[in-house]
Design a protein around this nucleic acid. Structure first.
Length: 480
DNA sequence: CGTACGGATGCTAGCATCCGTACGGTGCGCTAGT
């Protein structure tokens, strides 16, 4: 079937968005594909349409349970019932059922961890998949090496089995991350589609403080007098909670969000924000992946993220509706030190590597290092992964190298923040692209008119004024 | 690695300095114990 006929048949659209056609054509020619498309540009259509044309199950590896649930719901809303999220939300019975009938699903979502379970692997070896999708594929590079090693194991599995084409999807990846993806997934000369990383409607602000203490004042004043919805990113859970409290006292509808809260609370807060019941989310980097709220107007970073990729991901959540939005990066001297500590703080040390191996040599359980608090859960798993395949010396060298790379990444972030040239050009350059066109409201160094944002806010307020009285009354009665 | 904060000390009554301590992100799946 021709692609142009398939699109209206399955989705009702008449034209493709940039990249979709190229990506799907490559998949249908059984090529591996790495596609960098901005969120909201119809990434999921690439594998959905391919699945329908191929008439075979599509396996989607997703980093977050909540993301899987969202996508499953979306497909079901769309009328597709042959969808399953194979993850720990399922009871034993449900899981057994899903596995037994796995080939009858059209779209199978799962996590790297679940994918590697022997029973899942065994079932997958018996069925014929049409396509494997690795969603948010930058996670391989960002998390695989020191946080979720199972991201590297799926690559090892790919290289051992005969498999259908693999489609790796991401919104932001540097040349190095693309290389990491291609290498760890053992992709075979992949077709690469790169969309512009620049987001011209997001103005790039920067404010530098001599005195750290002035930051808090600035943030409070700024949020009071400008428009939400917005996300304020902090680099610690505690500070997120503190800022949240201050903003609530100032009468701003705010909630804090970090990984210390339970899944239900997090779900609830996220939903309130999406529904417009909260204006600001004060969060660690736990917040954001999979958030599809079109009208986020501001992203403020109280301290710089640990790398430029994270920065791009985080500011990229603003202005998905195409309306003006602003990202402001605050800086005071020494901010990079906290970032450096945080990204390397949980890496196993040389001492840990030696002790782990020593316990193995003595035929003792290395997990005792977990129980006595010597190692964190994460560090333990990372050590376990690397020592399975490399010598003590190699692992030590690898971990040192990893720490150095992480330091370098922080320095790159600082460099872009401190540049005297166009911040946007630097940012785009970091992703190996050249800035095509400077928007009118570009960045701090080119000059920004901050009041653009307030214009949007005024229009929003006017819209609220125009809600007819019946629905206002209903809102009041419903307690909204 | 750097900062914030509390308490003790030091030299002369309230304030400066010093020292020790605590704190710092991201998620999956599974299990034991409430």
């Amino acid at each position: 079937m021709e692609l142009e006929q398939a699109l209206p048949k399955y989705f009702g659209y008449t034209t493709f968005r940039p990249g979709q056609k190229e990506v799907i054509e490559a998949i249908l020619q059984e090529k591996d594909v790495i596609a960098l498309l901005p969120t909201g540009m119809g990434k999921s259509l690439c594998y959905q349409l391919s699945g329908y044309i191929l008439q075979k199950p599509v396996l989607i590896v997703s980093p977050l349970l909540s993301l899987m649930q969202d996508q499953v719901e979306e497909l079901k809303r769309f009328g597709e019932k042959r969808v399953v999220a194979l993850n720990s939300f399922l009871t034993i019975t449900e899981k057994r059922y899903a596995l037994h009938f796995l080939e009858q699903y059209r779209f199978i979502f799962t996590s790297p961890e679940m994918l590697l379970q022997p029973q899942v692997q065994e079932k997958l070896s018996q069925i014929k998949l049409g396509l494997i999708v690795v969603d948010e594929a930058h996670c391989i590079s960002q998390w695989g090496f020191d946080f979720r090693p199972d991201y590297l194991r799926i690559g090892q599995w790919f290289s051992q089995v005969s498999r259908p084409p693999v489609l790796a999807l991401s919104a932001t990846a540097t040349e190095k991350v693309v290389k990491d993806i291609s290498k760890t997934l053992s992709l075979n000369n992949p077709f690469e589609f790169m969309y512009d990383v620049d987001r011209p409607n997001i103005h790039l602000g920067r404010v530098t403080f001599e005195d750290k203490a002035d930051k808090a004042q600035w943030i409070l004043q700024h949020i009071k007098k400008t428009a939400g919805p917005g996300i304020l990113y902090l680099s610690s859970r505690k500070r997120a909670e503190q800022y949240c409290e201050v903003l609530i006292q100032a009468g701003i509808r705010t909630a804090a969000y970090h990984a210390g809260y339970g899944a239900e609370d997090r779900q609830f807060i996220q939903q309130q924000f999406i529904d417009g019941e909260l204006d600001w989310i004060v969060a660690t980097n736990a917040f954001g992946m999979g958030i599809n709220k079109p009208d986020i107007r501001q992203i403020i970073h109280e301290t710089m993220p640990a790398n430029v990729e994270n920065y791009m991901q985080e500011i990229g959540r603003a202005g998905r509706d195409g309306q003006p939005a602003i990202a402001i990066l605050l800086y005071s001297e020494g901010d990079e030190e906290l970032a450096k500590f945080v990204v390397t703080g949980d890496l196993p040390t040389s001492g840990h590597v030696e002790r782990y191996q020593e316990l193995l040599n003595q035929r003792l359980q290395p997990s005792q290092m977990l129980k006595n608090g010597e190692l964190s859960e994460t560090a333990f798993r990372v050590l376990n992964f690397w020592l399975q395949q490399e010598s003590v010396e190699q692992v030590k060298a690898r971990l040192n190298q990893l720490a150095l790379e992480k330091y370098r990444a922080v320095d790159e972030m600082k460099k872009i923040n401190q540049t005297k040239d166009c911040i946007r050009a630097q940012l785009v350059g970091y992703f190996g692209q050249k800035l095509q066109k400077k928007p009118e409201n570009c960045c701090e160094n080119c000059g920004i008119h901050y009041d653009e944002i307030n214009k949007v806010r005024l229009e929003e307020e006017r819209k609220i004024e125009m809600i007819p009285w019946e629905s206002r009354l209903k809102q009041l009665l419903m307690g909204n």
